[in-house]
Design a protein around this nucleic acid. Sequence first.
DNA 1: TTGTATGCGTTATCAT
DNA 2: ATGATAACGCATACAA
Lengths: 333, 333
Amino acid sequence: MPLTLEDIAKESGVSRSTVSRVINGDDNVSQATRDRVMEIISRVNFQPNLAARGLATGRTNVLGLVIPAGVSTIFTDPYFPILIQGVSAACNALQYTVMLWLAEPEYERRTISQILHNGLVDGVIVSSMLMDDPIVQSLYKSKMPFILIGRHPTLDVNYLDVDNRLGGREATHHLLRLGHKKVATVTGPQNMIPGYDRYQGYLDALRDRSIKFQPDLVTEGDFSEMGGYTAMKKLLPHLPDAVFVASDAMAYGAIRAIREAGLDIPDDIALIGYDDLPGSSRTIPPLSSIRQPVHRLGYVATESLVDIIRHPATQPRHMILPTELVIRSSCGD
Amino acid sequence: MPLTLEDIAKESGVSRSTVSRVINGDDNVSQATRDRVMEIISRVNFQPNLAARGLATGRTNVLGLVIPAGVSTIFTDPYFPILIQGVSAACNALQYTVMLWLAEPEYERRTISQILHNGLVDGVIVSSMLMDDPIVQSLYKSKMPFILIGRHPTLDVNYLDVDNRLGGREATHHLLRLGHKKVATVTGPQNMIPGYDRYQGYLDALRDRSIKFQPDLVTEGDFSEMGGYTAMKKLLPHLPDAVFVASDAMAYGAIRAIREAGLDIPDDIALIGYDDLPGSSRTIPPLSSIRQPVHRLGYVATESLVDIIRHPATQPRHMILPTELVIRSSCGD
DNA sequence: TTGTATGCGTTATCAT
DNA sequence: ATGATAACGCATACAA
């Protein structure tokens, strides 16, 4: 029922090859026919069938966006939504379309081979935070162009990341600079890259100032509010006077634990989080935090991928976006 | 480079038609050849090219999910993320793939005709809340199967919605039942369907109890925290003793305004919100709210759409999912 | 039960 | 500058 090249061709009295040329901006068309064909195309609002074009050219102008669902359950946090927005915005601007896969574990294998072999996408953006993600492995072994959002610990692949490590380092430095002696940390899971990197940043800061590392001042959380609460409870007996919490969600839990213990923030314990969630200006007291440019992450990754598709590079590219410390009253000034 | 039917055919010594039959579960294949072909298919992990299949059959097993971006800026609220998860989960289960369009206004027209004519999707799920959305109009005029998430005020189309009106009614009733005399409301924008419906629910409740409507007790917000704050400020001079706020985000703002005025919640003013955001159990005091089954909304809409695609119905179907009042201390008990 | 032939809507190659 | 024609990978009507 939809129109085809042939219809346009008949309507404008040329062959379908010519119409195709007009659509694809081929030079070998006289201005006169070009105008005539264009007029008809826009009048009837003709859109070439992308499946057919994909078959013929091997390119579809569709990008895959893969978000492993083990992570995506953390969907109450606006990280992924904003990331998706960034990707989508770039796709709109670049005339691409985005195919979304929230890869639930039980479908993961099917998902991967679908993506790789169904010929529907020109390239894939993967937001994986796991140290060892099978999806990344499969992609790596395939010929499919792809880019990771979040660095990869071992494989030399295209990626784009925020500087989690430096962020953790700066947060910790800021607490130390304020004069705190016992700066603790609630880390994220150490099998997740941001969890690991932010913790390394904490260690970097200690090393920078030759401060002795105290295992008692480190507890691992799971990036959730409840995890932060539990972790902070474990930390309290060791009397930290400041704590770098590796995510705002966990920081909310930590704040709850500290207040339940009857302690004051920031007078008894100063606090810095990570992510700068919208709610962080509404906690009591407002939470200082490391802000990451999430929308930009998605946008730039998309631009990058498109560039990779168009000019297959031999050298994998690595990009790191900077973070920013947002100071609110939870850390004292 | 990827494998084709022909490759599998050669490998297993049959024609490509037979391979195709095996893949599509056609009965007319001997068990012997079926087994042999199957074995090879799974051994080399063959996946049929979906673009080609789409060309041949006219169906792609791809669904479009369209979220107008005027709305999607409200992406800090987990409504859309969870909705997307629901859609995605259903797609995984039903062997469909989801194509995502965050329709930014500047690309909206292009978006629509892309979706309608590029032959890449079998049907479309639209989450529109605007009273008069051009996307819906275009879809309505086309032959593309689609379903709305959120009812449509005038067009008789397939839709799935939560009972916003009943939700507003129940929230208001609850406040009245507690003995409050001056129950105010902060509404959403009246050109958005949920804004309108929840307000109608408020009016229903007043009518149910033959309570005189007082225009002073109604202020319109924009579903944002700031909007709720502003609206509540306007309401305070009229001394309400309870208020139904049409979204939790606005309720956060309202709480801020009430506390700034030195009033107590719920003793001076009782409060019920709508949406039951994750943060609502952490406001002070914890916010009572109407909970809607958002994930389910996405899941059921997808199932429905697939059913519509497979069995084109003559009668548009309308489904309404129930909401649930979650009582916390902000309304007194 | 299986194979052959045709068409889906494009692009690309080759003539003209 | 333009038109005919052959792929692209699959499903399917028809033959065998």
